[in-house]
Write a protein that binds this DNA or RNA. Structure first.
Lengths: 181, 181
DNA sequence: TATTTAGGTCAGTCATATTGACATATTCTG
DNA sequence: CAGAATATGTCAATATGACTGACCTAAATA
């Protein structure tokens, strides 16, 4: 019932053989594995979020706010690459329900700096722990150096123009670690 | 304008240090890199699909039908893990616009076996080539063995109960390659 | 014959995203 | 200081992709 029985019928020549020497064979395995892996990767948090009447969008917002305390709304939009109208509803719900607070910028009073509350941090950590469990299990199944290999592969998959941002964000181990006592 | 300037404020102790010895630090880097990498990975096809008034759902359906000619509707639902109502509209549009055809099953005439048309295969290959370009570029930036490392990491990230299916689907290089002349 | 299976469809709902227009407060600049 | 630019919020309309639940037909099967 779970297993499939798909038999390829009507075999034809691959496109690269019909149009001689134009294209290499697509990397079907990685294309499909990325789909399956990402789906399961976000599936764990989804289950928790559903019970709270939240969705993936709430997760992303809470995650980056928790990781970057005091970030501006504009920064969040630039990371998520969505419009402020899309962010609006989701952010409002997180604020109304006490997961995130806004504070007026000290220098620029137009800014609404975003912070996760204790409640928000707790949820963010709960979701991050779920995803970490999956990653840790995956890395443990494989040899040493896998974390670094995966990291480099994922970075290389990012658009060149987005890499600096991604590296800056992910290079910091944890803003909540004792940097300033 | 593109770059962010986020300074972490209010550093606190990490959760693993407050609740002594409970949790390891979350793997922030891979969690976030998976988000960025997957977003850019699906972004290339999205741009093409938008011009055709299609979305990601159409891509997934067309992709798996093209890769598995003659598959049953039930197989597709099991791969995509969506309901038949969700599949319905998307599949109907692909059929109406001549990207996919259905043929009655030879043995079981209840079945509607799915095949990509020439037009469908052309679009599927165009999208796969975009994603392959990104993957090939990424792998070329890194050392040898990266393809295999990435493959194993992604497989290990998949739910155990979904792995067999994923491995079976992705193990086959290309159903259109000359297996039976 | 009765039940199960494969597939389709109607109706309603929800979450996430979009564009476009506009409003408010604040900062910056000539 | 006046006017422009910036940061943010909001209203309205729309599209996409997913869901549940109910119901239907045709064909296979027990």
């Amino acid at each position: 019932m779970t297993d499939l029985n798909i038999s390829p019928i009507h075999p034809r020549q691959a496109a690269s053989e019909r149009e001689p020497g134009v294209r290499p064979e697509p990397t079907w395995d990685l294309i499909e594995l990325l789909f399956f892996a990402y789906r399961d990767f976000v599936g764990d948090p989804d289950d928790v979020l559903t019970k709270l009447n939240f969705g993936r969008a709430h997760h992303r917002v809470l995650h980056f706010v928790n990781r970057n305390p005091g970030m501006k709304v504009a920064d969040l939009l630039d990371i998520l690459k969505i419009t402020k109208q899309s962010l609006g509803r989701v952010l409002k719900q997180l604020i109304d329900q006490g997961y995130i607070v806004q504070k007026e910028g000290a220098n620029d009073r137009r800014q609404r700096l975003l912070y996760a509350t204790g409640k928000g941090e707790a949820l963010a950590m709960r979701l991050a722990n779920l995803q970490t469990e999956r990653i840790t299990r995956a890395l443990a199944e494989l040899g040493p150096g896998t974390h670094e290999n995966a990291r480099q592969f994922l970075i290389a998959m990012i658009n060149v123009e987005n890499r600096n941002q991604a590296m800056k964000l992910t290079a910091r181990p944890d803003p909540k670690r004792k940097t300033t006592p």
